[in-house]
Amino acid sequence: MERKPKIEIRRKLRKEVGFGCPVPGCGRPFLEWHHFDPPWRELNHHNPEGMIALCTEHHAQADGGAFTIEQLKRLKHSVVEAAQVKGRFNWMRNELLMVVGGNYLLETYEAIRYKETPLIWLSRDDEGYLLLNVAQVTVDGEPRFSMEENFWTVHGNEEDVDCPPSGKMLSVKYTNGDSCSVKFLELASKEALQKHYADAPEALFDIETPVTAVEVTFRLKNAGLDIGPKKTVIGGNTFRGNFSVRCGAGVVIN
């Protein structure tokens, strides 16, 4: 049996702690799965009643015996879901390939602009590193995910927040079907670039590697906004396959 539980159990464990580590004063969203009743070393199991979601630091402490079974059970069943789940991506580069809604943008500051308002864009810090921003959007009076210079916040009535300890991926799903995701990855060679983005314009494969890419999806059903893996649909307009290099803006919708 693998130590990592199935996705249904991971979702249950994340949700019961409010998508953040339940140890008082922590709240970090980068969660792992601790087996405590019984411990994994005594019995390989995936019984959610005997498991709890903890951050990497507190998982290691729990494995070392820092918490009793009674304390862990209280943490499982006395946690009130946080109003906001927050975190930060530590991926900062001088050059960044954004892959947004089927469009490819190398060091292009605005990935998508809608009616003069940027939706997904980059900014630079004082050291010259590129940082990711995603505008906060409200649907039916309920705010959604947003990001400001790599610091992200989950707003609203989220159904699931998946943020592994690797710190390179975030996936958020809402009860009405809205969703968003951000994923950073390193592509070490032209071959890796071609393999990962086989449907991209040929010009993409002429860029220098290695390159860091960030993939962003953002779907708001009631707003007619669908920035998916393969295409961008906004206000009835569909965009895909655009390739921009060091431009002010990629996809502009008026």
Rank of each mutant, 00 (worst) to 15 (best):
residue 142 E to M: 08
residue 74 R to T: 07
residue 79 V to S: 12
residue 68 T to Y: 12
residue 43 L to F: 10
residue 120 I to F: 08
residue 77 H to T: 15
residue 81 E to N: 09
residue 69 I to W: 04
residue 71 Q to M: 10
residue 61 Q to Y: 14
residue 44 N to C: 07
residue 88 R to A: 15
residue 137 V to I: 15
residue 135 A to D: 06
residue 48 P to N: 11
residue 126 D to H: 13
residue 89 F to L: 07
residue 132 L to Q: 04
residue 145 F to C: 04
residue 115 K to P: 00
residue 78 S to W: 06
residue 54 L to G: 11
residue 74 R to I: 08
residue 46 H to Q: 12
residue 123 S to D: 04
residue 91 W to M: 05
residue 121 W to M: 04
residue 43 L to R: 13
residue 48 P to K: 05
residue 96 L to E: 08
residue 79 V to R: 15
residue 51 M to L: 07
residue 81 E to Q: 13
residue 90 N to W: 06
residue 71 Q to T: 12
residue 127 E to R: 15
residue 79 V to C: 10
residue 116 E to G: 05
residue 43 L to P: 00
residue 104 Y to G: 10
residue 62 A to R: 12
residue 88 R to H: 14
residue 125 D to R: 08
residue 124 R to H: 10
residue 105 L to G: 01
residue 111 A to P: 01
residue 140 D to E: 12
residue 130 L to A: 02
residue 103 N to F: 07
residue 135 A to S: 11
residue 74 R to Y: 09
residue 93 R to G: 00
residue 100 V to A: 03
residue 45 H to W: 10
residue 143 P to D: 03
residue 61 Q to K: 15
residue 111 A to C: 03
residue 66 A to I: 07
residue 51 M to R: 03
residue 55 C to H: 14
residue 120 I to N: 02
residue 126 D to T: 14
residue 115 K to M: 06
residue 62 A to T: 08
residue 43 L to G: 07
residue 120 I to E: 01
residue 150 N to Y: 01
residue 128 G to Q: 09
residue 82 A to Y: 14
